[in-house]
Design a protein around this nucleic acid. Structure first.
Length: 451
DNA sequence: TCTGGGGTCCTTCGGCGC
DNA sequence: TCTGGCGCCGAAGGACCC
C-alpha cells in the first residue's frame, strides 16, 4: 500500500466515544482495601521468594522508587517500610468482575484488555452525546461498589483513549476531543505508545525519533525498514491518529500454559522430569478449566544464564487426553536437550480446539501424581490449616474466636496475623501459636454488586 | 540477591506441494 | 524431467503488555 493511501485511510469515528478505563495500581489497591492497616502505607505485591519480582507497587511505594517488574529485593531496599504481599488472584478477579459489570452499564460493547483494563464503545450505548458524564458517573459507581479508583481516558480512537487514561493517572479523567488530538499526541514520547517497548524505542532513537511528532515526520519506507513491515505500517498510521481498531468484546484464547521459576536452579534428569510433570499438571488443570483440547505442546526451558529456548511437539490431531499431552510435554522437554542447570520450566498448549476429545473408557487411569521435588517449594494454595510451609504473606486466614485476618509471617509455630478485613478498623499484628490456636486458610471475602 | 507469570503478535526460516 | 517461484504451514525466537 502506498503511503498516501495509508495516511488517507478512513477515519471511522468523528466523535470521542472510545473510553478506556484502567484501575490504579490494581493489585496493591485491592490489598489496601481488604487490609485496613495498609491504607496509606507502601505496599508491594508480587513474588515473595528469593527470585520474586514486583507485580504492582502502591503509589506510596512508587514514591520511594519501587516499580512493577523490578526485582522484589531491589524494591524492598528502596521502600523498606513496604508491606510485601503474595498475590491473591481470586480476590483481584472478583473486584475485576465488578468493575467490568459496572462498565457494562455504559454500553454492550466492552472489551476487557486485562484484569484491570477495558475499552468501552460509547457509540453503542446511551452516552454517545455526553462521554464525560458517562465517565464521571461510572467512576463514582465503581468507587462506591469496590472502593477502588479507576482512571478513564476518552478519545476518538483506542490509541488516544488509552494514552488519555495514562495521562490522567492516578484517579483521573481526561477527554481528548478530536480537535485537540494533535496537541495531545505530538509531544508524547514514543515510548508512551502501546507496542513500542525498549527494543523498538532504541531502534527509533537511532533515527532521532523520540516523540510522536518525530515519528510523524518519518517516511513509511524508513519505518518499515527499521521496525519491520507490520510495525512500520502500524506506527506510520498511529502517528497520524489513524487507528480504526474497533472495540471488540471477547476474543478467543489462543494458548494456555504454566511455568515455574525455581527457588534454586535444578539439575539432573530425575528432578527435571518430575518438575516437567508438575508444571504439566498445572497447565493441564488450566486447559481443563478452559475446556477442549490442544494439538501442539510447547516446552520452555530457561537456563541459569537466562538463555531461553522452546521446543514443540505437534500431534496428528487435537486431544484433551492428559496422558497424551503429558507424553508430548516430556518429548518436547527432551528435545530441548537439557544438560545444564535449569532456572525455569514451562509447558503450554497451542492450536486449541473447542471440542474436547472424550476420554476413552479403557484408558482413563489417572496418571500417578508426580513425585514431589522437595527443594522446590511450589505454591499449593489448597485451603486447609495454616502451616509454615503453606504460609504466604497476605493470605486470608480465620480463627475460631479471633475471626478473619491475614498472614503477616509464620516462623515455626508462631504465626503473626492481623485480624482485620474490609469493614473493620485497622488491627495491630498479633502472634498466634499454631499448635494451640490453629488457623484456617480461607478464600478471600469477595465483594458483590449489592455491596 | 539482577531479571515472574500469564499471555499475544510478529518475523524468519525451512519444508513441502503445486 | 528439472528448476524456479509461490503460498502455506510449522517451528523457533523475540518484543511487548499487564
Amino acid at each position: 500500500m502506498d503511503p498516501a493511501q495509508l495516511a488517507d485511510a478512513s477515519r471511522l469515528r468523528t466523535r470521542a466515544t472510545v473510553l478506556h478505563a484502567d484501575a490504579d495500581s490494581f493489585f496493591a489497591a485491592v490489598e489496601q482495601r481488604d487490609k485496613p492497616s495498609l491504607r496509606g502505607r507502601p505496599v508491594l505485591v508480587g513474588g515473595t521468594g528469593p527470585r520474586g519480582v514486583v507485580s504492582t507497587a502502591s503509589y506510596e511505594a512508587r514514591r520511594a522508587g519501587a516499580r512493577s517488574a523490578m526485582s522484589m529485593s531491589r524494591a524492598r531496599r528502596l521502600s523498606p517500610a513496604a508491606a510485601v504481599l503474595f498475590p491473591r488472584f481470586e480476590a483481584y478477579s472478583a473486584y475485576s468482575r465488578l468493575i467490568m459489570a459496572t462498565l457494562a452499564t455504559l454500553s454492550e460493547l466492552v472489551e476487557p484488555l486485562s484484569i484491570d483494563e477495558a475499552f468501552v464503545d460509547l457509540e453503542a450505548g446511551p452516552f454517545a452525546d455526553d462521554p464525560a458524564r458517562a465517565a464521571t458517573e461510572v467512576r463514582a459507581r465503581i468507587r462506591e461498589v469496590t472502593g477502588l479508583a479507576v482512571s478513564i481516558g476518552i478519545g476518538r480512537t483506542k490509541l488516544v483513549a488509552k494514552l488519555a487514561s495514562d495521562a490522567g493517572k492516578p484517579d483521573g479523567l481526561l477527554v481528548v476531543e478530536p480537535a485537540d488530538e494533535d496537541d495531545f499526541l505530538l509531544p508524547l514520547p514514543v515510548r508512551a505508545v502501546p507496542g513500542i517497548g525498549p527494543a523498538t524505542a532504541a531502534a527509533l532513537e537511532r533515527l532521532d525519533v523520540r516523540t510522536v511528532a518525530d515519528l510523524r515526520r518519518q517516511p513509511l519506507d524508513i519505518l518499515t525498514m527499521t521496525v519491520g513491515e507490520s510495525s512500520g505500517v502500524n506506527l506510520f498510521r498511529l502517528a497520524r491518529g489513524i487507528d480504526p481498531r474497533p472495540v471488540a468484546p471477547s476474543t478467543e484464547r489462543k494458548s494456555v500454559g504454566a511455568e515455574r521459576t525455581f527457588a534454586q536452579d535444578i539439575f539432573g534428569a530425575d528432578l527435571i522430569a518430575a518438575a516437567v510433570d508438575r508444571v504439566t499438571d498445572e497447565a493441564l488443570r488450566r486447559l481443563t478449566a478452559h475446556g477442549g483440547g490442544a494439538r501442539t505442546v510447547v516446552a520452555k526451558v530457561r537456563f541459569a544464564d537466562f538463555t531461553t529456548l522452546t521446543r514443540s511437539v505437534t500431534l496428528a490431531q487435537p486431544t484433551a487426553e492428559p496422558a497424551e499431552l503429558r507424553a508430548a510435554a516430556h518429548q518436547a522437554a527432551r528435545a530441548a536437550g537439557i544438560n545444564d542447570s535449569v532456572r525455569l520450566l514451562g509447558v503450554s498448549f497451542h492450536n486449541l480446539s473447542p471440542h474436547a476429545q472424550l476420554t476413552l473408557p479403557w484408558d482413563d487411569d489417572e496418571p500417578a501424581p508426580a513425585a514431589a521435588v522437595d527443594d522446590v517449594p511450589d505454591v499449593p494454595l489448597a485451603l486447609g490449616l495454616l502451616t509454615e510451609e503453606n504460609a504466604r504473606p497476605g493470605l486470608d486466614v480465620e480463627h475460631d474466636t479471633l475471626g478473619r485476618g491475614w498472614v503477616v509471617h509464620v516462623r515455626g509455630r508462631q504465626a503473626t496475623v492481623r485480624f482485620e478485613s474490609v469493614d473493620t478498623p485497622p488491627a495491630r499484628s498479633q502472634v498466634v501459636d499454631l499448635a494451640t490456636d490453629p488457623l484456617l486458610l480461607v478464600p478471600p471475602l469477595t465483594p458483590t454488586l449489592d455491596a
